[in-house]
């Protein structure tokens, strides 16, 4: 399996990373080297092996449904670039 420069561009777009055209050849070959490695892993027999969701051999511990946090808005908004009326302001986004 190998990827093209277009795929790299799409992935960069999804990750909101700026990638210049002249970086594409190097990135493409790095990607393909990683995919080659995974191709080797694919060859390992995995019949009957349960997919691993987490490397720790443990299950999730749960917390009781209790409100433990107090209002920290003032402290949290002190480090935000822009706030108004208690809201965080960001560049305009409309669907």
């Amino acid at each position: 399996m190998s990827v093209s420069g277009d795929t790299i561009r799409e992935i960069a777009q999804l990750a909101r990373l700026a990638v210049e055209d002249d970086e594409l050849p190097a990135l493409t070959s790095s990607f393909n080297a990683i995919l080659d490695l995974f191709e080797q892993l694919q060859a390992a027999p995995t019949d009957g092996v349960e997919p691993m969701a987490n490397p720790l051999d443990a299950s999730q511990s749960l917390r009781e449904d209790v409100v433990t946090e107090t209002n920290q808005r003032e402290a949290l908004q002190a480090v935000a670039p822009l706030t108004e009326d208690g809201l965080y302001l960001v560049p305009r986004v409309v669907d």
């Binding site: 809201l87 302001l89 960001v90 986004v93």
Partner: peptide, 14 residues
């Protein structure tokens, strides 16, 4: 997301 007029910005309530 609140798209009312915040000087052309969007307000976020989390």
């Amino acid at each position: 997301s609140l798209h009312e007029d915040f000087h052309g910005m969007t307000g976020i309530d989390l």
